[in-house]
């Protein structure tokens, strides 16, 4: 108790802190290597941690069950080291990406239209929003079989599933962005009798851009997962990564399953980074948060 008491004269406990501070002639711009290091080292360290955790869990498994968690060498020898399999993996990635990108394109275009329509008629937001939330909270996995029994097993039903997965973020982020335009900017347009359409194009949409792109990268990273989910129920014919996942599991080819999973993550990250990159290119010259490195 007695040594937690604050001394009456705090001044004499201050550290003398007088030293000369060197100047730099011009604040140096961050070098390329420095940027690479700050951008790459944290994810690599985190990745190593994940791999260590994986190895640790695996070492705890009894030997007869270790096949459930293939080793790194196993994944190389039975999957990535086999050219034919890598080719198949790439071919299937293209199939999956086609579904993901088409579905994403659908939800982006419909989502943007819906966002703008809700912005125009704000009462529609009240009408539509609850259903968007419901749509978002329905376990899509549960309605995949429904969609398939209704629409069949072709390309479009899968695209529709992707669209359902990825739709929510688009109209919501767009509407949020459109509504956050500064009141006085709107007043400025109103003073010139600018039409609603001109105000939308010249004030609201540019303003909403960065927010919208945050929505795009959320939707984008969901799209690949959604495409894979949509394929889980199609085991015949030439499908994408999702089909490979299921087939490999049925055949106990866990190495291939892991290879497909790794490929899927790479694709998800790629889509996410694409939108991040595009958003930065479009907005970093005026939107501060867009220019920040992540």
């Amino acid at each position: 108790m007695s040594d937690t008491q604050i001394p009456a004269d705090t001044g004499k406990h201050r550290r003398a802190n007088i030293e000369s501070h060197e100047a730099t002639p011009v604040a140096p711009p961050p070098s390329v290597t420095r940027r690479l290091v700050t951008n790459l080292v944290p994810p690599i360290l985190a990745g190593i941690l994940v791999i260590l955790a994986y190895a640790w869990v695996r070492s705890g498994l009894p030997p007869h069950r270790q096949f459930l968690m293939p080793s790194g060498t196993g994944i190389w020898e039975l999957a990535f080291g086999i050219p034919d399999f890598v080719l198949e993996l790439l071919r299937r990635s293209v199939t999956t990406m086609a579904i993901a990108v088409t579905g994403l394109g659908l939800s982006i275009s419909f989502g943007c239209v819906m966002g703008i329509v809700m912005f125009r008629f704000l009462f529609l937001e009240k009408a539509i929003f609850p259903y968007l939330v419901v749509l978002q909270s329905v376990p899509v996995l549960a309605i995949v079989p429904l969609i398939q029994s209704a629409l069949g097993f072709g390309f479009m039903p899968k695209v529709l599933i992707v669209a359902l997965f990825t739709f929510f973020a688009v109209p919501t982020t767009l509407l949020l962005g459109l509504k956050s335009v500064d009141r006085n900017i709107l007043n400025l347009f109103k003073l010139q009798n600018a039409s609603w359409w001109v105000t939308l194009r010249k004030a609201c949409l540019p303003f909403a851009g960065p927010t919208l792109f945050a929505g795009f990268s959320i939707s984008g990273s969901l799209a690949v997962i959604a495409a894979i989910t949509s394929e889980l129920f199609f085991l015949s014919g030439e499908g994408g990564l999702g089909q490979l996942l299921m087939n490999a599991k049925i055949d106990f080819k866990y190495e291939q399953m892991y290879a497909a999973l790794i490929m899927a993550s790479v694709l998800s990250i790629a889509v996410y980074l694409f939108f991040k990159w595009l958003g930065n290119r479009l907005f970093s010259h005026w939107h501060e948060a867009s220019g920040k490195q992540q």
Binding site: N184, L188, L191, A203, P206, F207, H285, W286, H287
Partner: peptide, 13 residues
């Protein structure tokens, strides 16, 4: 009509 607001209300882009 000219009108300036309390802040400059420029379009940042």
């Amino acid at each position: 009509l000219g009108y300036t607001f309390q802040d400059a209300t420029l379009l940042p882009w």
